[in-house]
């Protein structure tokens, strides 16, 4: 999976918030095989570098840290947070969230495009948390974004892929862009489904962090993402209305009923 200049083996990215403990977070990261984890600067900081000890624990796993602007509700807030994150984590990568609705936490697409433009001009490499809206996606690409992350469903809702048609259309529209499904994934089958649609990867957080056993769930997601990707690469069957026998029936003794070739 290509994220700007980085090529990653794992197609799974994990969030780091709300685990029972940093130790379980570490074990979950290892079990997931993720090479990138997101860290929210906003809440963990409250002051510059105030979350340093927590970040150090994450870094001990050897994974790359992708700062995000989770919880930012305005362009200015998101841009400032991204700039702070670049200082703290020494990376140009940023997962850009500009929240537009407090209830559904859906992105403010207008603010997102504007913030993407500002940050791209400032040298950032933006991974944009967006919806499956194709027009917004076009505008984000125009603004310099090369990794789009449409939601499956609202953040933390565990509802899976709400709009499979929309996600499929997005994949078809941007065959060469890196696309990840971000948000709304609840169980591994949701992740597998996203991968079967041809998405490059998935980003999830609470599905693992809030599971009864986060480490086991992380392993489940690792396998599901691999399985879904393999299915996509193998060119799967399309659903059909009629049964199709996998063994030829010609020449067998059949009682009653016709055989249609």
């Amino acid at each position: 999976m290509r994220i700007y200049d980085e090529t990653l083996k794992s197609r799974l990215m994990l969030g780091t918030a709300r685990y029972p403990s940093p130790q379980i977070l570490k074990q979950a990261i290892l079990a997931s095989g993720a090479e990138i984890v997101t860290v929210s600067l906003r809440r963990e900081a409250a002051g510059e570098r105030a979350g340093q000890k927590f970040w150090d624990l994450i870094r001990e796993t050897g994974v790359k840290v992708l700062p995000n602007t989770a919880g930012c509700h305005s362009v200015r807030e998101a841009v400032t947070t991204a700039q702070m994150a670049r200082e703290v984590f020494r990376t140009n990568l940023v997962k850009l969230e500009v929240i537009g609705d407090a209830d559904t936490l859906q992105p403010d697409l207008f603010g997102l495009v504007e913030a993407t433009r500002i940050l791209t001009e400032d040298g950032f490499q933006v991974l944009a948390y967006t919806t499956e809206d194709l027009v917004a996606a076009d505008r984000l690409v125009e603004a310099g974004c090369r990794v789009l992350m449409p939601w499956g469903s609202p953040i933390g809702s565990a509802r899976g892929l709400n709009n499979v048609y929309g996600l499929r259309a997005m994949r078809a529209r941007f065959p060469d862009l890196t696309l990840l499904v971000d948000a709304g994934i609840g169980v591994p089958s949701h992740a597998a489904q996203a991968m079967e649609l041809g998405y490059d990867g998935v980003l999830l957080s609470s599905a693992v962090a809030l599971a009864g056993n986060p480490v086991t769930m992380a392993r489940g997601f690792r396998l599901a993402v691999e399985a879904g990707r393999l299915a996509f690469e193998a060119d799967p069957l399309q659903p059909r209305d009629m049964a199709e026998a996998s063994t030829p029936v010609l020449g067998q003794a059949l009682l009653g009923g016709a055989v249609f070739a």
Binding site: R43, E44, A46, G47, A50, G51, K53
Partner: peptide
């Protein structure tokens, strides 16, 4: 519950 060393007042 915030992962932070900051000691200031509540936000």
């Amino acid at each position: 519950m915030i992962e932070s060393e900051a000691s200031g007042g509540p936000t």
